[in-house]
């Protein structure tokens, strides 16, 4: 029963968070200076009639409270509205952007988790050696780098070797599926690497610290006394307990990487959600802004929710 209580509590908390975030999303963009109609209505020969028509079309002529309830009602039906700027459904726009962003972010994150955890564990195991010092220094170095700067440096370093931007080669007409896949992979290397390198340092530092703590525990000493091999002690016994803070970090960073992809996508002209949000902010495209920020919220909440559930599995103390 305690387990079910825990899951229910976490679920309610996640839902309330999403509701609050959705409300803030509605308020905050309308509170910002500028309006959705101002820019679009500024066309040669524009008339007040056009402006009024746009205001009516966008539903901005209604009282704010009414707009809010309409928004919530539509949200409950899974309808995020129609983009003011492109006049296409926000779900279509978001879907298109996410399909581009997720593989790139996922690749970078997996690299960071895998490489960062590995170097962190090795550094902890070899604490005090040059391997430890080198690993920590390198991790700190990348952790402290501004994402956009690192991206620009990689662009310069790999200029002429790897594509300088975009997701595909626009000059590759009618590619075969394999050609297309290879093309996308080539374009994905630099943005994913940028994201991965910035994140990896954090994973190194956290996993090293967690592993150092765990390796000092009595049960590790017991394992050694039992004559278990070092490799088994580190990877099977110590790492499992050290996974708790790493799991927390993974949950936190997943939220970050979706939002953090804005900088990477700007540097590498990657047509994902980061660029979509920049365009939406510029155009005061409220439905797109609400939609993209809802995605950010969902990413963070969902990642934390999954982390909470994983904690339940990883840490028996929670059950008690």
């Amino acid at each position: 029963m305690r387990g079910i209580d825990y899951v229910v509590k976490r679920t309610v908390f996640a839902l309330v968070t999403i509701f609050v975030a959705a409300t803030i999303n509605f308020v905050i963009f309308r509170a910002a200076p500028g309006t959705a109609v101002a820019n679009i209505a500024r066309v040669p020969g524009a008339t007040h009639q056009l402006r009024e028509e746009l205001t009516r079309d966008f539903g901005l002529d209604k009282p704010k409270l009414e707009q809010y309830f309409i928004y919530l009602g539509q949200l409950a039906r899974g309808n995020l509205g129609v983009s003011f700027a492109s006049q296409t459904p926000v779900t279509t726009e978001l879907g298109r952007a996410l399909v581009n962003t997720i593989p790139m972010v996922l690749l970078g994150t997996l690299f960071a988790i895998g490489f960062g955890t590995l170097t962190g564990v090795i550094a902890a195991y070899r604490r005090g050696t040059w391997i430890d010092t080198g690993s920590v220094s390198l991790g700190l170095f990348f952790y402290s780098l501004p994402t956009q700067w690192l991206g620009l440096m990689l662009l310069l370093i790999f200029a002429g070797t790897l594509p300088s931007g975009g997701r595909v080669d626009p000059f590759l007409f009618d590619p075969s599926p394999v050609e297309h896949l290879l093309d996308v992979a080539r374009h994905m290397i630099l943005p994913s690497l940028t994201l991965g390198l910035v994140l990896y340092g954090e994973y190194t530092l956290v996993s090293r610290s967690a592993m150092l703590e765990t390796l000092g525990e009595d049960y590790i000493l017991t394992a050694r006394a039992k004559g278990l091999r070092d490799r088994r002690i580190v990877w099977a016994h110590a790492l499992r307990n050290a996974l708790l803070p790493i799991t927390t970090l993974m949950a936190l960073s997943l939220g970050y990487v979706v939002a953090g992809s804005i900088l990477v996508e700007e540097v590498f002209s990657w047509p994902g959600i980061g660029r979509a949000i920049v365009d939406a902010v510029r155009a005061r495209d409220y439905p797109m802004l609400q939609g993209t920020f809802l995605v950010f919220t969902l990413a963070v909440v969902l990642a934390n929710y999954v982390a909470d559930l994983l904690y339940f599995r990883l840490d028996p103390r929670i059950k008690e």
């Binding site: 310069l156 594509p163 975009g166 540097v267």
Partner: peptide, 22 residues
């Protein structure tokens, strides 16, 4: 035969692509 447009958000990357023959 045709032409292709590539949209850049980063002009440094665009100039780099020009310099490198992309």
């Amino acid at each position: 035969d045709g032409y292709g447009l590539k949209f850049y958000t980063n002009t440094d990357a665009m100039i780099s692509a020009l310099q490198n023959g992309e």
